[in-house]
């Protein structure tokens, strides 16, 4: 965490804002609040927060539109916090550039973890040549992956998949996005490829493949690389 990361909350529900302020302040973040989309855009421009927590059901503008407007110039993480829980809404928000999506009601512990992950990957974005997760190290230049110092034999596809997820650590990547990045446009419907490779990859990198801690499934949405 930088000395004091600023987090902007754009949400019209007073009680949610108050809860977030208490929780986030207690964790050492500085909190700014906006009660609608228009104010939110202004606050984002003036305060340049390190992260934005955005509600989708805003009184003036739809949150998805605010997200798109923000993404025209704002590169830092945006986490959606909404009661909308349909897969369509979630995928759309992720496609519009959200880093993560949490549905209300949510666990504050979970939210804090997602914020930490988003901020950290933000800070690590500076292409480090070697990425480390506990006992797993990925050398991006030599394409060597080690677990407990043992070299893992990964196929080219497994490696691209791992690298894509690891570089976006903490961020939910949709099935379509992963398929497009790893296999190419033609394959974005071929979810079955992704499933097979994820299962293979888990067997190689996870301590317990049936309780994955690195390659985490996001129900019906995609995958997220945890720690």
């Amino acid at each position: 965490m930088n000395e004091e990361d600023t987090i902007l909350i754009i949400d019209d529900e007073k009680q949610i804002r108050r809860l977030l302020e208490i929780t986030l302040s207690a964790s050492g973040y500085k909190v700014i609040q906006s009660i609608n989309g228009r104010d939110g855009l202004i606050d984002a421009a003036t305060h340049r927060p390190s992260l934005i927590i955005l509600d989708l059901g805003l009184p003036d503008t739809d949150g998805q539109k605010i997200l798109k407007k923000l993404r025209e110039w704002y590169q830092k993480p945006v986490i959606i916090l909404s009661v909308r829980d349909s897969e369509e809404d979630i995928i759309k928000a992720l496609d519009n550039g959200a880093n993560d999506y949490l549905t209300k009601p949510f666990r504050t512990g979970e939210l804090l973890a997602r914020i930490r992950a988003a901020l950290r990957s933000e800070n690590e974005m500076a292409d480090s040549a070697v990425i480390t997760f506990g006992s797993l190290t990925i050398d991006c230049t030599s394409h060597v992956v080690r677990k407990n110092n043992e070299m893992l034999k990964l196929t080219a596809t497994e490696f691209s998949l791992l690298l894509l997820l690891a570089k976006n650590r903490g961020r939910v990547l949709t099935h379509q996005y992963i398929l497009k990045e790893v296999w190419g446009y033609k394959y974005i419907e071929q979810t079955q490829y992704l499933r097979v490779f994820v299962a293979q990859l888990r067997k190689k990198i996870e301590d317990n493949p049936s309780k994955p801690s690195l390659l985490i499934t996001e129900s019906g949405i995609g995958y997220r690389f945890g720690e």
Binding site: T155, A156, T157, S160, G184, Q190, Q192, Y193, R195, V196
Partner: peptide, 13 residues
């Protein structure tokens, strides 16, 4: 049953 017989290894290495 899924069509994974011609499972695609990516070529973009």
């Amino acid at each position: 049953e899924p069509d994974i017989k011609n499972l695609q290894e990516t070529g973009n290495e």
